[in-house]
């Protein structure tokens, strides 16, 4: 019985502390619930593909080290004055520790092929409980129709 009470007490204490923590608060279970892996194209007609992959126009955190630490709050894509595409992703560090992350973007044409070489990794410094903005510009203009951002821990 004692064994059961001690963790329950600890949980209560944690809850009390959490309410005093500054924003942002990341509900990682909900973050996980929002995951939307899409099925890839099936090789056999009428069958769903067993392969689930990243959807287009999204940020994918491919590094398990930071998957529960970062939250991508918003992604925007817009055309610049010259017709190229600028993607902007706002990233939140949900932890109490500073983090380094890296991100890169691959732009795609409307037929699904890469319209240009993948961009270089761009480093993001994220102090504890802060947000930062990742920004990347495409090289092409008419050819760009979609994008995909990868994110990993910066070491």
């Amino acid at each position: 019985m004692k064994r059961l009470l001690v963790p329950a007490f600890g949980l209560l204490l944690l809850g009390g502390c959490a309410s005093l923590d500054p924003a942002p608060h990341c509900d990682m279970s909900r973050v996980a619930g929002q995951r939307d892996l899409v099925a890839g194209p099936a090789m056999v007609e009428g069958e769903t593909s067993p392969l689930k992959e990243m959807p287009m126009n999204s940020v994918s955190i491919t590094d398990p080290n930071i998957i529960r630490k970062l939250y991508v709050r918003s992604i925007a894509a817009r055309r610049t004055g010259t017709g190229t595409v600028e993607v902007v992703a706002q990233v939140v560090n949900c932890t109490d520790f500073p983090l380094n992350a890296e991100a890169r973007t691959q732009f795609y044409a409307n037929d699904g092929a890469a319209s240009e070489p993948v961009s270089a990794w761009r480093r993001l410094q994220l102090p504890a409980r802060t947000s930062n903005t990742y920004r990347e510009l495409s090289l092409g203009d008419k050819t760009v129709d979609g994008y995909m951002i990868e994110m990993r821990e910066g070491k």
Partner: peptide, 21 residues
């Protein structure tokens, strides 16, 4: 659960259509 959550993503807006400047 961990392998299932090894990849998280957030879907963003589509690229607006191209308009000649």
């Amino acid at each position: 659960l961990v392998p299932l959550m090894a990849e998280a993503q957030t879907v963003g807006a589509k690229v607006p259509p191209y308009q000649a400047p």
